[in-house]
């Protein structure tokens, strides 16, 4: 119980570090990076809290949250780079005109 509580506090401290970086971050990518880290820590926090309270149903929420975090970050990156969510204009001549982010995401999710 003590250890779980300590881990909880440590994760919260890490999350506040990520928030500090999200406030300071000079570029938008720093902010997205700390957002991603914040999401991962949230997943961990949900897991630890579910053990702390003895309610293991929370684990389903943790998996769902990690999924949403991943999709959200990739969508945000596509939006910041392309200015659109892709798919409307497949022949657009940008670095990601070949839908590389989407493909990488799908393929590495499957293996």
């Amino acid at each position: 119980m003590v250890f779980l509580f300590t881990a909880c506090v440590a994760i919260l401290v890490t999350m506040s570090f990520a928030l500090v970086r999200a406030m300071l971050g000079p570029t938008v990518f720093d902010r997205v990076l700390s957002l991603n880290m914040f999401g991962t820590k949230t997943v961990l926090l949900i897991c630890v809290v579910s053990f702390l309270q003895g309610r293991t149903d929370f684990l389903d929420l943790a998996l769902l949250y990690s999924l949403m975090n991943f999709i959200g970050v990739v969508a945000l990156l596509r939006f910041t780079t392309q200015g659109e969510f892709g798919g409307q204009n497949p022949n657009v001549d940008t670095p990601f005109g070949d839908k590389s982010i989407g493909n990488t995401a799908l393929k590495s999710g499957g293996d």
């Binding site: 570029t27 990518f29 997205v32 991962t40 970050v73 990739v74 990156l77 940008t94 590495s108 999710g109």
Partner: peptide, 25 residues
Amino acid sequence: ILFFVLVTSPSSCHALARSAIAHGL
């Protein structure tokens, strides 16, 4: 959950780095 975090974290990290490079950083 661990497997999923370990699979998605490098993907989003790589996407982040690539889009930062493409953005001129």
